[in-house]
Each structure stands twice: as structure tokens, then as C-alpha cells.
Write a protein that binds this DNA or RNA. Sequence first.
DNA 1: GGGCGCATGTAAAGCGTTACATGATTGC
DNA 2: GCAATCATGTAACGCTTTACATGCGCCC
Lengths: 178, 178
Amino acid sequence: MALEHAILISLAERSASGYDLARRFDASIGHFWRASHQQIYKVLARMEADQWVSAQVIPQGSRPDKKVYEITDAGHEELARWLAVPTPPEHVRSEFTVKLRALHLLDRSLVFEAVAARRAEHEQRLLAYEESAQKFFPSPADLADEQLGPYLALRGGIRLERNGIEWCDEIAHTLEAR
Amino acid sequence: MALEHAILISLAERSASGYDLARRFDASIGHFWRASHQQIYKVLARMEADQWVSAQVIPQGSRPDKKVYEITDAGHEELARWLAVPTPPEHVRSEFTVKLRALHLLDRSLVFEAVAARRAEHEQRLLAYEESAQKFFPSPADLADEQLGPYLALRGGIRLERNGIEWCDEIAHTLEAR
DNA sequence: GGGCGCATGTAAAGCGTTACATGATTGC
DNA sequence: GCAATCATGTAACGCTTTACATGCGCCC
């Protein structure tokens, strides 16, 4: 159950409304833990009941009211506790790889298309990551302490996409060679 | 909803009982799509109702009866249909990366431990994959058509673990340098 | 006039994990 | 005696996705 904790980390950086969090998830943490706004609202309600966060309603005139959440002391404690617990091994869950296993049941041309499409996705994300890196961490040698984590996370994303691209190329080459 | 289809692929290779499938998932497909036996039994029941598979009960004397499932024509059709549908982009879901983002909230020594533990997991899986590769695909240049998919899937696993190890090393080096 | 952004949710259904349940055989 | 392997499930719970719902303001 890590969505709670992902939200705590995000709120520890800066207080935010559910809507803000949803956008933040789209933009940054979401690269490693996706969450919809519906889910975020539900979890926030539970977290408020558990007093990990406290909310303040801010009227905004024409726009709908905003509920800005802030992490509480109890929330910080829970976050520290969770961070210290060893992370269980993660399992890959890849529909693409499942399909790949059965490639002989499919037209070769369709396989090429699928691999090309996946490669393009990797490339697009890689580009986005590299732009983020350039923008937020132009000088990685001298990062502030709080930036180190986000920087290394982004590095992981970049590695993942590059690796994905290389794998797609290997698949394509292997298929071409027959 | 890919478990159904992962099972169809497995049954297309060879008929099997739920128990067999569970072990097969532990050993091979499970590297890319984990499933518990409970889940497999539940899904098999639904697939039988949908007539994607048919079951034959085999008494075994002392041992409990076996229900061996076989893919039907409708199952093959469904599998072909599904294989041809473009795979939606996959999202990473990594608790480790979420934690990594908040590394500044944790003792440096705990971070090193966590990274070392993760590196060890990668290394262990890499070793297992490389043994599989050696054992099942000793001569990748001349593979049968049906082996190509499993081989390339395994290659993906090997790449993933190597990449994970390199990332762990990068994290450790970056942290040591400060 | 239509679509997008802001802002918050409810409801239903499906998917997945964990715990529980049974019972014989084989190996240490 | 104890654990593991074979073999199949049920039940409860929690997480996730998808669909539905509302309503104003801004821009083209």
C-alpha cells in the first residue's frame, strides 16, 4: 500500500489539494507510481481520518473551493517508519512481454509494428525525462540534499527507457536475421 | 486483463492443470506476469464458463484428482484476437523508486543497505536468467520458431536485471561522492 | 457553441493478495 | 515427528479502473 506514502512524500515537499496532487503525479512521481484523481481523493479522505494529513478549505470565489492538505506530525512519523521498512522485491508485470512470448502465433509484420510502437513510446518518455533532467538538474555535481532523490529517480527512468529501446532494437534485429 | 491470455498462451504450448500452471508461472511466464494459484483457479473457472478452455478430470488413485485444461478453438480465436490488439503503454510501479525520492529523510546507512539489498535481488535474478538461457537456448542462432518468443522475453529479463544493477551502482557511487 | 482547465467527488465492477481449508504421500 | 509436494479450492478484504456526476470560466 504505497499510494498513501507517495502522497505523504509529495505533501512533505509541499502542501497541495487533491487536484494538485493528481497533476503532480501526472508529472513526476507518477512516472514511478501512477494514480488517478479518484483514487487520490479516496486515499486522502482516509489519511485525513487517520490524521496523517490535515485539510484546510480555501474558498476561491468563482472557482470551486479548494481543500489544501498538509502533512501532520503523525504523518511525518508514519512516513519515517515506512521509509525504514525494507522494500519487498518488485515483480515485473508486462503485457508486452507476455505477448512477445507468443510471437510465433502472430504475423511477422504485426510483430514489427508492435515493437516499433513500443520503441517509440520509450523514445518519447526518454525525451521527456532528458528534458526534465536538463531543466531541473542542469548541474548534477552540486545538488541540494532534497534534490538527490528526485535526481536519482529520474536517472532510473532514463536508464529504463534506454534499456527498453535497446531491447526493442535487439528484438527487431533478431527477427530481421531470419 | 492479461492473466486470461497468459494462461491461454501457456495452455497453447501444453495442456495443464491449475497446479501445473501455477508452477509454470513460478518458473517462466511468472517472471513477467506473476500469479498465485488461487487467482489461477478462479480465472480458469471463468475461462471454462466462457469456453475458452475445456477441462478433463483425471483420477490419480492416491493423489487428488487432476483437472487438466486444454485450450479450445474459441480460446485460440480469443488469443489471436488479443495478440493483434496493440498493447497499451505500460507504467512502472516501483515502491523502491518512490522511497528513493525521499532519501534525504532517511539515514544514509539505511539507504546504502536498501540499495545493496536491491542490487543483490537483481543479481540473483540475473543469475537465474542466465542459467535458463544457457540451459534452454544454448545456441540462439538456430532457434525453432516457437522458441524465439521465450528467448527474446528472457533476453528482456536479462537486460532489465543488468540495467537494475547498473542503476544501483550509480546510486551508490553518487551517494559515496558526497 | 464546443472543448479544455479547474475542482471535487460517488458507484460499481474487476483484479489481486492474504488467510483459511483439506488430505494423502514422500523424504529427512 | 515434521516439512514438503501434490491438488483444489473458498472467503474476505483491499486496491485499481472505469463510468458517472456537477458546475463555472476561458479561449477559439
